[in-house]
Structure formats: C-alpha cells, structure tokens
Design a binder for these strands. Structure first.
Length: 287
DNA sequence: AAGCCGTGGCC
DNA sequence: TGGCCAAGGCT
C-alpha cells in the first residue's frame, strides 16, 4: 500500500496547480470558503468568486456582520445557493461559539451548518495539518481504480472505502499533502470520463489497469434531470433577485417562468429555504 | 436512504 | 448534440 506514497507525492510536487487556498499563506477561513464553494463546483469557476469573497470578507466576523442576502448575491452563479446561506450561518456560529476563529477540531467543524464528513476532514487537514480520512469524489475514484480495481466507486461511501483510505493514510507529517495529492491526481489524471493513464505515476501499481480496465458493472449511476424542473425554475427566479439592486415586484418574477403553478411553488420553497423574503405584498427581496 | 438542490463546460 | 460531470450536504 505504501508503495503508492512516494510516486504520488513526487508527482504532486511536480504537477500541483497553484491555488490561492493552498500554501502556508492561506488562512483557515480561506480554506473553509474554498471548500464550501468547491462542493460540486469546478475549480475554474470558484477562483474569481473566492478572491472576491476573501477580499470583501477577510474573516468569519466580516461575513457574519452582513445580512445573509449579501452572501447569496455575492455567490453569483456558482450554483446551489443554499451553500452561501450555510456558509453565512457557519460564520455566524464561529463568531458565537469559537471566538471568531475557524475551529480546529473535526467534531467542532462537523457541527457547523453545511459541513459534512468530507468538508470537516478537509478543513482540519488542509488548514490545520491534522490527520483525517479525506474522501471526496476524486479520492474515491482513484482508490476504486488503483486499489479496488474497478472503474467507479459505489454510489455512496462504504465502510470498506473508509477502511482502505485509512489503511493508506500516512502519518500526520505527510497526511495533508497525501490527501491533496490524491485529490489532484483524480482531478487532473485519473479523471472520470477519460483517464490519462500514460501520465499516471502509479499506473504500474493500478489494479484496474492490471485487470484490463474492466467496465463499470455496478448499479446505474443516477443522472439529474434539468429542463423544466423546480431546480431550473428556482434558479431563474433567484437570478432575477441577484441581478437586481433591491426588492423586485412579482411581475418581474412572473416574467421569468411561465408555468404559474410551478412558479408559485418554487417561490414558496425559496422563501422556506431562506433564500428569499416576502418583503411586502407582491414584493420579494434577498434576505 | 434515495432524492433533491444550480450551473456551465466538455467530448 | 446532449448526457455526463464537478473538492457534497441535508432530509
């Protein structure tokens, strides 16, 4: 197992991208903001927004001091805007419970809104050098192939995956670099659709490659519908608010989505989620 | 625990 | 062209 360490670490040393939330100068808050934004959103789209956020809100207290609607607006088109709400709520909790400092303990991080197993491990590891199993989609795919010998991991994280990841996790000294290196390998080389095995530092050790790249034979992987869904409708409605300076009249929202029943339902769900407020009769605004 | 939650680029 | 995919979390 530890045969993997040296080649992966060396490959990372030579090929790692320089990203603003990596390196010794990045604050824990910068790491935390990046992890929220990177949940299901590619690096290239996160970069400019992350820079704006850190410039405008250099600490959790700076963000917590503003209305949550400012976070939603500044989230722009990153998608899944509830993440902006949760990040704002997490910043508020950090001010209230942790003196304004991003907590260092996994359990404290895990208790914050919007932080699940992956993000708690990532912040503890990358911001504080702690030793935790970091299992994101990239790491899961690399281990599925290199160690388990299958093309794709199971739909949900399994106990066996956690055990494998823990078994190959190096000591605290190398744990953070190891995790970010495996993630980077998955992002740049061991990609989902067309892996570049010729450029892979562990191709010679890869169980999937040794087995002749057998095709995935697990349960069908779910693909998300989009056109005409509530998600598309919610996105359209929220975009109207984001692109306006202040509150908007309902007529503007009516123009954004023709199906009235769906529009009314989605408007209600946005208010329920806290992404919109009903400011006055027929007037909506960001919170 | 299976389904829901945005958005845009890519092959 | 359009399904697939991207540093998940919540219920």
């Amino acid at each position: 197992m530890s045969d993997l360490h040296q080649p992966v670490l060396q490959w990372y040393d030579e090929h790692a991208r320089e990203l603003p939330w990596r390196g010794p100068s990045a604050s824990a808050w910068s790491v935390m903001v990046s992890e929220f934004m990177l949940q299901q959103t590619p690096v290239a789209r996160v970069l400019p927004v992350h820079e704006q956020w850190l410039s405008r809100w250099p600490s959790p207290a700076d963000l917590a001091a503003e209305p949550s609607g400012e976070a939603v607006r500044a989230w722009g088109r990153l998608g899944y805007p509830r993440r902006a709400l949760r990040l704002h709520a997490a910043a508020t909790a950090i001010v209230q419970r942790h003196g304004g400092e991003v907590p260092e303990e996994y359990d404290d991080l895990r208790a914050l809104p919007g932080i699940g197993d992956y993000t708690a491990a990532a912040i503890a590891t990358f911001a504080y050098g702690r030793r935790h199993v970091v299992l994101d989609t990239n790491v899961r795919r690399v281990f599925a192939r290199a160690i388990q010998g299958v093309q794709f991991p199971a739909p949900a994280v399994t106990k066996a995956e956690r055990e494998v990841a823990l078994a190959v996790l190096p000591g605290e000294e190398d744990a953070p670099t190891w995790s970010v290196a495996v993630m980077e390998l998955g992002a740049l080389v061991c990609t989902a659709a067309s892996p570049r095995c010729a450029d892979c530092p562990i191709a010679g050790l890869c169980a999937w490659r040794s087995a002749g790249h057998p095709a995935y034979d697990g349960p069908p992987r779910k693909t998300q519908a989009w056109a005409g869904t509530d998600r598309q409708c919610r996105g359209r409605l929220l975009a109207v608010l984001r692109d306006s300076d202040g509150p908007v009249h309902r007529s503007r929202l009516d123009a954004a989505w023709s199906d009235e029943g769906q529009r009314v339902r989605c408007l209600a769900s946005l208010v329920e989620d806290g992404l919109l407020v009903h400011a006055a009769p027929d007037v909506y605004a960001l919170p």
